[in-house]
Nucleic acid binder design. Structure first.
Length: 242
DNA sequence: GCGAATGAAAC
DNA sequence: GTTTCATTCGC
């Protein structure tokens, strides 16, 4: 391989530079496997990781988890508002008032049983594969964001009533205490998710807005920790961020 | 919208 | 070097 490809952009990215689909699947499994316990019958998969997997990768993950469970498994999008997917036996999804909404041609959709919400879910589910408008492509998650997303429920379960800010503090410390190897695994997963995003959205580009097009927001300089208000004319500036 | 963590990417 | 935003969701 060549060792001088330091700059990689969506435009210059050749097929040989893409992580193989197998590599994405195996990296994803390494991360997901760590959440499995003898009591795990449903696995939660962050949306970004799920979307980075191709059909073969999803099969690979499903087969591995099926081996652990000893039961057939299926994927289900979480219909409760989180960007994540579940993998598990169908019976597990039906416990505790849950139900699976399956609209032909779309992925199954899990949610708490309720007539109105099921109808909304059916509509929302159609939107997943047949987006009426082009949605904004979200920024790919970095290694720490993946780490936090994966573990937030563990921390929340262990500390009822904990706030998200406190979860960030706990997992920020945990992240810094992790070994190089563990952090590297999340780093590699974030890189693969990013490359998969470039494949799926060749025109994607990170476009941070200047001084918040929506609402003014006090900033804080790192050096002086001084709160700096926005200039009044900044809001008037038009933005072409999208 | 902000906050709380980290880090990538854009200025 | 500085800012935004990717994750979460109560406030």
């Amino acid at each position: 391989m060549n060792h001088q490809a330091a700059v990689v952009t969506p435009g210059t990215l050749g097929p040989q530079d893409q992580p193989s689909k197998e590599a994405i699947a195996s990296s994803a499994w390494v991360l997901l496997e760590s959440q499995i316990t003898p009591f795990t019958d449903v696995m939660a998969i962050p949306g970004a990781i799920y979307r980075a997997l191709d059909a073969g990768g999803k099969k690979f993950i499903a087969r591995n988890f099926m081996t652990h469970l000893g039961k057939n498994v299926l994927y289900c999008r979480d219909g409760t508002g989180y960007d994540r997917y579940f993998l598990g036996n169908a019976r597990s999804f039906l416990r505790g008032g849950g139900t699976i909404v399956s609209v032909q041609g779309t992925e199954p959709f899990w949610m708490i049983r309720s007539t109105t919400t099921i109808l909304q879910a059916a509509a929302a589910n159609l939107g997943v594969t047949v987006p009426p408008k082009e949605k904004k492509v979200p920024r790919p998650p970095n290694a720490y964001i993946l780490y936090r997303t994966e573990r937030q429920n563990v921390v929340r379960d262990a500390h009822p009533g904990i706030t998200n800010n406190e979860i960030s503090q706990v997992l920020g410390a945990a992240w810094n205490a992790e070994s190089r190897e563990v952090r590297q695994q999340y780093k590699e997963m974030s890189e693969k998710i990013k490359q998969a995003l470039y494949e799926q959205h060749p025109d994607y580009q990170y476009r941070p807005r200047k001084a918040s097009q929506k609402k003014r927001r006090a900033r804080r300089t790192a050096s002086t920790n001084e709160v700096i208000e926005h200039d009044s004319d900044e809001l008037a500036k038009p933005s072409f961020a999208d």
